[in-house]
Write a protein that binds this DNA or RNA. Sequence first.
DNA 1: ATTCTACCCTGCAAGC
DNA 2: TGCTTGCAGGGTAGAA
Length: 274
Amino acid sequence: MPELPEVETTRLGISPYIEHQRVVQMVLRQRNLRWPISANLESGLIGQIIRKVSRRGKYLLLTTDVGTLIIHLGMSGSLRVLSDSIATTPPGKHDHVDILFDNAQLLRFTDPRRFGCMLWQTDPITEHPLLCDLGPEPLELSFDAEYLHGRSRGRSAPVKAFIMDSQVVVGVGNIYANEALFKAGIAPRRAAGRIAISRYATLVSCIQEVLSNAIAVGGTTLRDFTNSNGEPGYFKQSLQVYGRGGMPCVQCQHMLTEVRLGQRTTVYCSYCQK
DNA sequence: ATTCTACCCTGCAAGC
DNA sequence: TGCTTGCAGGGTAGAA
C-alpha cells in the first residue's frame, strides 16, 4: 500500500485533522515495530501541538516545538483519522498506536507486518541517520537527467535496483520502478552505468509522470479518507506491467516477462524495453 | 565503495 | 478441509 503516492495521500488526508491540534493522550498497544518505540515518546509528545505534517520520501514527519515524530508505514502500515473516541472505536488486532487530539480526533496507526516504525526525534531532523543520506525527492527540480546520469557512472547494478535505492532518489518502490522502466523503454536489468544521459532524461520524466498520476488518483480517496478502508483499486487499472507477467504487452502484444531481481518481482516487455 | 543476501513479521493464496 | 510453501507495495545490517 504505501508507495510514495500513498504516503502523500495519507499526509494530505490526515493533516487537516491533526495540524495545529494538541496531543492529549496516547495508547501504545504494541511497541515492537521495525524498531521499538522509545520509552520517551509519550512524555515527549503528549501536550505538544502538531505544527506541520510533512513528508520526506516515504517518511511522514509530524513536527512539534520540541521534537518530531517520524512515521514510516513499511509495507503494510496505514494511518486513519477517526472522529470517535478511543472508547467507542475498539482497536483491531493490529492497531498498535492511538494518538488522541484535543479536537477529539483520533489518529490510529495500523500495521499487521510491523515493518513500519514510529520514532521520536528531538535533534534536528536532518541529522537523523534514516533521513540524512536520502537522495532528492523525485518530483523536485534537483532530480534530473544530469543528476541521475552522474550518480550512475561506474555502477554495474541493474537500473531497477539503482532507481529503487533511496540514496539515489526517494520514493520509487517496486511497482513504480516497473512501470516507469516500461514507460521509458528501458530493460530493468541494464547496468545503470551504461545508460546514456538522453535515456535518463526519458526515465526521469517517466518516473515523475507515473508518480504524479498516482498521487492525482490517490487524491480522489481523500473525500472519504476517514472512512476509507485503504482500498487501492484506482491506479490498479492504469498499471501496464506490474502484476501482469505472462499477459500480453499493451504496446506490442508479446508476452510480458516476469523475473526476480534483488528479491523483488520484476515484470517487463523484452521487445519494448532494451 | 558497491552489490548481494538474509532478515524483520503477519496474512493470504496457491498447491498438495 | 488442512497443512505447507511462497510471496507481498519497505528498508537495514552485514557479508562478499
